[in-house]
């Protein structure tokens, strides 16, 4: 056995490597399986927004504009928040945990490409988001007189705002996953970021009633624009002026700001994403 001669050519060189996409699909499935089996993460992703929805919706069920109750307003904000929860918050918390428990280190040592791992995360985020939206939609319709839009154009808006927002937040989540030093400390760093954005972007309060400087500040970040996009789908046209100060929902600007953050998130994620936490 010892001193066997070196094979001159590698017999495995002709075997075909699995494609990045095929492995991305496999990653998606395994990510979903793990996500839904982890009771804690499933609870916080689905139950928490639901509770918030029911509590806020019931306590502040007053009209804030002709034909618009706060509950309806809040549903749109929570669906926008769902994009941030499932994309940004979920990844920015779980990836540092995966870095700590050796998940990422194990993956790094396999021939699975990084891109497949990212595809898996995007797949996970997409499914978790759809499930969350359906849940919030049902609660909104059943308890808070949420009116689902009937025009196809509104659903089209809903689709592109969701997809662009998810892409943006997923990349930002990947980028932000390098910030927490440990998996244990990740929630304490990530959750406040989301909470502050929710307060300033018009999720918990009517945006037009916030101080002007706060409105300006929130306009720098994606959540405000996500909320605006969702309001354009679920609230009447007449409400646009409340949020934008103009007659229109400014969807072009929504796309622009989300697009810029998406590109920025992609650049930072590519530059800073690390498989391992400790210095090597």
């Amino acid at each position: 056995m010892a001193e066997a001669t070196a094979p001159t050519s590698n017999p495995k060189a002709t075997l075909r490597m699995p494609t990045t996409l095929a492995l991305g699909w496999r990653r998606t499935r395994i990510e979903l399986r793990q996500f839904f089996r982890d009771k804690e993460s499933a609870f916080f992703t689905f139950a928490l927004p639901m509770f918030l929805m029911i509590i806020f919706g019931s306590v502040f069920n007053t009209e804030i504009a002709p034909g618009v109750t706060f509950a309806q307003y809040f549903v749109a904000g929570m669906i926008a928040s769902g994009v941030v929860y499932t994309g940004f918050q979920n990844l920015a918390i779980t990836i540092p945990q995966e870095r700590d428990d050796g998940t990422l280190k194990r993956l790094q040592g396999t021939p699975m490409p990084k891109a497949s791992y990212f595809i898996g995360k995007i797949g996970l985020v997409l499914v978790a988001y759809v499930a969350q939206v359906i849940l919030l939609g049902i609660i909104g319709v059943l308890f808070f007189k949420l009116e689902l839009p009937t025009e196809a154009s509104k659903w089209l808006t809903f689709a592109w705002v969701s997809v662009l927002g998810l892409l943006c937040c997923t990349l930002l989540g990947l980028a932000f996953s390098s910030v927490p030093k440990s998996g244990r400390g990740a929630p304490a760093i990530v959750s406040p970021v989301v909470l502050v954005l929710q307060f300033t972007s018009g999720v918990f309060f009517v945006f037009s009633q916030l101080p002007v400087w706060m409105q300006h500040l929130a306009s720098l970040f994606p959540l405000k624009w996500l909320v605006q996009g969702m309001q354009s789908v679920f609230l009447p046209e007449s409400f646009a002026s409340q949020t934008t100060g103009t007659d229109s929902w400014q969807l072009g600007q929504v796309a622009l700001v989300l697009g810029i953050w998406t590109i920025g998130g992609l650049a930072v994620a590519l530059l800073t994403f690390r498989w391992q936490s400790r210095s090597r």
């Binding site: 075909r16 699995p18 050796g102 280190k105 194990r106 040592g109 021939p111």
Partner: peptide
Amino acid sequence: LQDARDLTDLTVRESVTHFSSYYPN
């Protein structure tokens, strides 16, 4: 690796099947 604490929510078979798919053979 020397220490690993990952994959806790997957069964042995699920993990092995999944990682097998990463390789050409």
